[in-house]
Amino acid sequence: MWKKLLVPFGIIVPIVALLAFGFTREAREIPSPIIGKQAPAFTLTLFDGGTVRLEELRGKVVFLNFWASWCPPCRAEARMLEAAWQAYKDRDVVFVGANIQDQDANAREFLKEFGVTYPNGVDRGSRIAIDYGVWGLPETFIIDRNGRITYKHVGGIGWPILTTRLDEALQGVASAAEGKGDYRSIR
């Protein structure tokens, strides 16, 4: 009798459990291995012609945001990011925006539309983005004073999370896990 139950419960239940596990997982999610690691160095050519080198920002907390003008969640958070920049720019925090998979004119239009004042540049060929393992947009990385990635957020980042994580990074605290908001898969 127990032998008979062995077949359904010993074989079918594990299979169903496996399927249930698979079905309830977000297939597109890619857990990042780079949180807590040293941030990959980059040099970003800005829209205004200047450049930003990550090494030169040692000693400051860097808020690195990947975006594109065609990405609605990027539009949604643009004003908030600018407000956050205004709130944090005197507290040893630097905001950097990296524009990927976009057209120059559209990107400039975006910056003008939302009155973005922090340094923004084009990441040609998404080389920096790939170096950071970007797969969604917007994607945000917070890098502490020692150049270590303390937080990664895929998708729109809300004000509470942004401020909490920035404050943590200012104190050199790394988050255990990445965060997630509304995002678009990059193209």
């Binding site: 597109r28 998404s126 080389r127 790939i130 990059i186």
Partner: peptide
Amino acid sequence: VCQNLSVADSPSELAQE
């Protein structure tokens, strides 16, 4: 950014990059 496509087979911009 694809479902079950290799970087070699995907036509997406990211795969090209």
